[in-house]
Nucleic acid binder design. Sequence first.
DNA 1: AATAAATAAGACAAAATAGTCTGAAATCCG
DNA 2: CGGATTTCAGACTATTTTGTCTTATTTATT
Lengths: 150, 150
Amino acid sequence: MTSTMKVLSNASNYGLRALLYIVSRERGGDAYISLGEISEELDISFHFLTKTMQLLTQGGILVSYRGPNGGIALKRPAEEIMLIEVVKILEGKDFFDTCMLGLEGCDDCNPCPVHHLWREIKGKVKHDFATTSLAMMGQRINEQNLRLIP
Amino acid sequence: MTSTMKVLSNASNYGLRALLYIVSRERGGDAYISLGEISEELDISFHFLTKTMQLLTQGGILVSYRGPNGGIALKRPAEEIMLIEVVKILEGKDFFDTCMLGLEGCDDCNPCPVHHLWREIKGKVKHDFATTSLAMMGQRINEQNLRLIP
DNA sequence: AATAAATAAGACAAAATAGTCTGAAATCCG
DNA sequence: CGGATTTCAGACTATTTTGTCTTATTTATT
Ligand code: SF4
Ligand code: SF4
């Protein structure tokens, strides 16, 4: 029993929360932000977060810099990074293409009994993630003072 | 990497598919249907399916009968069994109450940054599962000849 | 050059999920 | 009664996910 409707893995949760922390934190210029700070602020295991962020670095979302005052930073403008890209890196490219009953070889012509329900839901999730940028989220977080921790 | 947007556990997948198989299969009266048949028809591990269906029996969805020509059957009319009840038994009662970033102590007044997106999605999922009965699904499956296997 | 601060890499462990197997109990039928 | 068929119960294993730890590498500072 999972006991919660878990759509994203913990890795994705952490990755998204970390990115949202970065974009929501106002900062002078393009300074790097350390994984230590993020893991502490968001109360996420440092090493696990590190592994996750490495995937995002390898995936072209982040750049990293070692040494004192090093850390990570967005590789591209926050306006250009959509949530869907992040999730695809952390969950897999076809994350948004399959689904509820987990059957294979699905399309609209060969649907399972819940496809009509799932199609809508999946469509909305995919659309939301594809049209929401990190910049939009950062602005929203600051304007409405939203939280990233329990 | 999960690589698929997995909302339900395998146990729920199997449980739902098994129930849908039962309601879609036209049959004389209220005969029991054996787990062996279901596991074979749906290509699901017999023992794993057995454990899952036991949860549904204990949860008041099914009745079972041992011995030759025994098996399982719906305890109540298919019209009265909503999908949400099945999922709550197999995933946990609060399955439909939490979500995407997996934070705690959430409500609309204390939202995380993706709450506005998730609220809608979660609402639709919950609504769909709460208003769809096994009978509706069975009828749909037969009318449109929908599949329960890959 | 030495030290410290930071990410990179990957081995390792723990926990959750998924799946397998064996034996017991109930039931039918001959 | 005795054997066949079926669910029930629970131990056991395997796989995936999650988390921890250790070591190496890069960079800045003194
Ligand atoms: S038919 Fe649709 S809902 Fe069903 S398993 Fe395939 S993609 Fe998912
Ligand atoms: S605020 Fe809403 S979307 Fe965010 S973790 Fe809580 S219930 Fe989920």
